[in-house]
Design a protein around this nucleic acid. Structure first.
Lengths: 342, 342
DNA sequence: TTGTACGCGTTATCAA
DNA sequence: TTGATAACGCGTACAA
């Protein structure tokens, strides 16, 4: 079928088929006009030699790589892989490949990734990384790389953005809780360096409590199930109640399991709410009440916006996803919608 | 196509700095010798013009793209994203970018992805996809693309593979269960088209039972928490006991929750075991007994093997990861290790 | 130390 | 319908 030596080039195909390489190119791209017989001759030699055009050379010649750069934190979270998955789906549909640029928690590294994205000659980029601010995004766009940003408000000719809105839902929840006679003290679990979504929620949590004149608490915890579970096993030895607002399902489950394993009843003694809910909120017992944004859908939307941007017909450069309260059994007085996690 | 604003090229930098483009190239790659002053002059112009070398052109010229192709199913599973994450970590360390080729359940699509990998001119590939068999892998390797395959036995000059071993652990578990006086009927949950790992486990399950002369059951179910949960809510109306072996945590949790929500006790009435365990096995109550392979580690190992392959010094072309029984509270007579999910 | 010229594998523009 | 030939942006022997 093929020699294990060098790559078969278009030139070798041309030579073997006894035509010019221009003709081969026409056959490959089904462009221009070629005699059916020459076409067949060329196609046969292509098959015989096992020739595959080099995407690299094609991209260089056409200035189109059909490749999208994706910048995401390497943190192994379900909701991140949900976003990635949504992007993947639409990208496949539209014929784009994805080049992954995974960042750690360091901003320096994130900047490096931006440089790589620019160098990599991708047709566009989707960025979902807290380390990067509007300035960084503008920079990448200034290099003529159409970009869609997730969870950061940036606008521009070649920029689209998708925003999350947890604010309304969270504020409503807190108010509803107290208006329905909630008496447990509300506790916000602070995770260091967990991104702007959480710190923003925390600010809102505090602001709302101040407005209502209610007491609250903020507790530091690790972004790890095991450690948070251990921490709260200790915690519940002296504290026997509370309403805990947690970053994501794992953390919420840690608090909840620590509570039940300490002989407390959820939600009678302890109530728990997860901010970034995933399908795993459904497998705990009790099921977790959580805020939900369909992050798979967010990924799809991001990729759609990007293709529109690439085609020059994106009209609405900004989209918003509102968090929906998905009611589980880990809270008492929250009313919310049912969310289908398929 | 429309003309976009032109990219700053090495040639423009050379012209602006008053040197030849070879000199600029030397500065970029820190190769050859350049006078400190010329170097500074060039570096300044680079900064002033905001020049970024084109990875495409570099790759074409050097025949190295510093890019690895990754073929994985698009199914949004935790264990897949764990593998991807492991690959990502090491790739970042070694200075490689990843190009993602996501496949659906169709074999046809998987083949297409193989073609794309070959075309994309990547330096190497990591493949984790059940749709692809040894022949497909050999094909990609015949195009001189060093490849590491996960969960498929393939050998070759430019090929490495990582195998999973669930067999020993599963067979031992089954035998142990009966030898310790297990009386519940064992039930294997068959999921259609869920890949060779599961179908292999199923065969082994049946074989072991036949050898022991024990009765067993196989039940079809969907690879979805919600549907399996509903199915078993129905099931437990008439069946009040059993030992269920499930594909992954979501499915196992569905069966377990359906059992407890039907008033059954786990593990007294119903025992549940998850084959592909993840950290989510720890957040259910009772905690799930599961088989565990550190898939993050698998991803890392795959990438390590690939870099060795690329450097021509891979000695052991084949690696094996044994499943470890991680004991939870969803079974009675299983002994196993503690697994740290960090 | 620096510059010239060619190659990498395509596409695209002309003539023929 | 075909075939030279010039880009595309860069690396690199080789020469100066």
């Amino acid at each position: 079928m093929k020699n294990e030596k060098d790559r078969v080039t278009i030139y070798q195909v041309a030579k073997a088929a006894g035509v010019s390489l221009a003709t081969v190119s026409r056959v490959i791209n089904k462009q221009g006009s070629v005699t059916p017989e020459t076409r067949k001759k060329v196609e046969d030699t292509i098959a015989r030699l096992g020739y595959k055009p080099s995407g690299l050379a094609q991209a260089l010649a056409t200035n189109r790589s059909t490749n999208i750069g994706v910048v995401i934190p390497s943190a192994n979270y379900v909701y991140i892989s949900n976003v990635l998955n949504g992007i993947t789906e639409v990208a496949r549909e539209k014929g784009y490949s994805l080049t992954l640029f995974a960042t750690t928690h360091s901003r320096e590294e994130a900047i490096t990734m931006i440089e790589k994205v620019i160098s990599s000659h991708v047709d566009g980029a989707i960025i979902f990384d807290d380390q990067l601010d509007a300035g960084d995004i503008s920079k990448i766009a200034s290099y003529n790389v159409p970009t869609v940003v997730i969870d950061e408000k940036v606008t521009g000719e070649k920029i689209g953005c998708i925003m999350f809105n947890f604010d309304t839902t969270l504020a409503n929840c807190i108010k509803l809780y107290y208006s329905r006679g909630g008496t447990k003290k509300m506790v916000f679990l602070h995770v260091h360096n967990a991104g702007r979504l959480l710190s923003h929620a925390e600010k809102l949590f505090i602001k709302t409590h101040n407005e209502l004149g209610k007491e609250y608490n903020v507790i530091n915890c690790d972004d790890s199930y095991a450690r948070t579970y251990a921490q709260f096993l200790e915690y519940f030895k002296t504290n026997r109640s509370g309403f805990f607002i947690c970053y994501r399902d794992s953390i919420a489950a840690a608090v909840m399991n620590a509570a039940t394993d300490s002989g407390l009843s959820v939600p009678a003694d302890v109530e728990v709410l997860s901010l970034v809910g995933t399908k795993y909120a459904r497998i705990t017992r009790p099921a977790l009440t959580c805020f939900n944004i369909d992050l798979n859908e967010v990924g799809k939307r991001a990729m759609w916006m990007l293709t529109d941007l690439l085609n020059g017909d994106l009209v609405e450069h900004s989209a918003r996803f509102d968090a929906i309260l998905s009611r589980g059994d880990s809270t008492i007085n929250m009313s919310g919608n049912d969310v289908d996690y398929h």
